[in-house]
Design a protein around this nucleic acid. Structure first.
Lengths: 190, 190
DNA sequence: GGTCTATGTCTAATATTATTAGGCATAGAA
DNA sequence: TTCTATGCCTAATAATATTAGACATAGACC
C-alpha cells in the first residue's frame, strides 16, 4: 500500500484554505489537512515546510488576493467615493473571509508578503493622493485609515463592538476620516 | 516526595503573567508555568481550570488593569485634552504590555470580562460626552475611536506600519478623529 | 517493451503539549 | 494526637508536529 495520489503543493494549500474557510483558522492542522486529502500527515512534508510553512504560504496567497480585491474596488472611482469604496471593500472582504483575514495578519519576515501586501497599500496611497496632502500627511493619513479599517474589522469579527447597527458606525467612521483629512490638509482640495 | 508548596491561584496567575510579559503570549503553556513554579503540570489543575481557564482568568485581570489605567489617564482633564490623553494612555499601555494587550483581546463568553472592560468603554463615553453628540453619533464615535486606537496599536505591534515616526502618525490620527467629530457633530461644541 | 530513477506516500518512532485518574503526604483543625 | 481537607505527585491517555527511513509507483530513457 502506498498508492500515489499525485498531490500537488497547490492541492495542499487549497485543502488547507477550505478548512480555514469552513471551520476557522484554529481548526487548521496538518492532521486535518491530511485527513481531507485522505493521506497520512507526514506525506504533507513533501509539499509544504511543516505547519509553519503552510501558514506562511497561505498568508502570502491570501494577502495577494486581498490586495487584488482592494485594487479592483476603486477602479474608475476617485475622490471621496474611492475612499468609501475602498473602505467598504476592506470591511466586506474581512467580514466575509474571517479566516483568511486572520491569516493575512500573520507576520512574516520574508519580503514576500510585503510585496504581496504592497498592492493594498499602493492602492490606498493612490486614493489618498487626490487630497493633495504633504508627504508626511499622506503617510500619516494612510496609516490612520489602515488602523481604523483594521481595528473596525477585527473588533467586529470579535463581536466586541456592542449592540446596534455596525453599518451605520462604519459609515460614520469613514466620513469622520474624510472630513478629518480635509480639515487637517495644508492644501485644501474641496 | 510530595512537598507541599502551598501555592495559590494568585501565584499561578502571577507566574503565568511573568511568562507572558517576558516571553510573549505564545510562550505561555501549563508546562512552562509549572516549571516556573517548580511543580508538575497536573498540579496546576488544583488552582486553575486548565489552560483555557488560565487564559480566561488572565484576560479578565488584564482587562481590568487596562480599564483602570485608562480611567486614571483622564482624571482632571476634559475636552480635546481628555481624548488625547486617553488615546496616548491606550497606545502606551498596549505598546508596553504587548502580551497583556493580546490577552485582553481574548474573547470570553461570560460577562466577567465585559464588566471589567466596561471601565474602558465608560471612560471613553464620558470623554466623548463633552462633544454634545446625539445618541447615535456618540455610539458611532466611540466605536470609531476604539477601532482606530485598537487598529493602530495592533498594526504597530505587528511592525506593519512601515518606516518613519509612528508618534507623528498617531498624533495625526487622534487629531483627525477630533476634527472629524467636530465636523460631523449635529450640535457643534467649539 | 523493459529498466531506471525520482519522488510521492507510507510506517515507525520521538517529542511536546494538555488532560484525567487516583494515590499519598502534609498542614492545620479538632 | 488523630482527622481531614487539600496540595502535589506519578501514571496513563490523547492529540499534535515532526524526523527517519523504507517502498512502490509514474514517467523518462534506452
Amino acid at each position: 500500500m502506498a498508492r500515489k495520489r499525485g498531490l500537488d503543493r497547490a492541492d495542499v494549500l487549497a485543502a488547507a484554505l477550505t478548512i480555514v474557510d469552513d471551520e476557522g483558522l484554529d481548526a487548521l492542522s496538518l492532521t486535518a489537512v491530511a485527513a481531507a486529502l485522505d493521506v497520512q500527515p507526514p506525506s504533507l512534508y513533501s509539499h509544504v515546510d511543516g505547519l509553519h510553512g503552510l501558514l506562511d504560504s497561505l498568508a502570502v496567497d491570501v494577502t495577494a488576493e486581498f490586495g487584488e480585491t482592494l485594487r479592483d474596488s476603486v477602479i474608475g472611482i476617485s475622490g471621496d467615493d474611492a475612499v468609501v469604496a475602498f473602505a467598504h471593500a476592506y470591511r466586506n472582504w474581512a467580514t466575509r473571509n474571517p479566516g483568511r483575514y486572520e491569516l493575512s495578519l500573520r507576520r512574516i519576515d520574508p519580503d514576500e508578503k510585503r510585496i504581496a501586501g504592497r498592492g493594498a497599500i499602493q492602492t490606498m496611497d493612490r486614493v489618498l493622493a487626490a487630497y493633495g496632502l504633504s508627504k508626511g500627511e499622506a503617510t500619516s493619513a494612510g496609516r490612520s485609515l489602515r488602523a481604523a479599517l483594521h481595528g473596525f474589522a477585527t473588533l467586529e469579527a470579535a463581536d466586541s463592538l456592542g449592540r446596534g447597527s455596525n453599518d451605520e458606525s462604519f459609515d460614520y467612521m469613514v466620513r469622520l476620516f474624510i472630513d478629518g483629512v480635509r480639515a487637517n490638509a495644508s492644501t485644501p482640495t474641496a
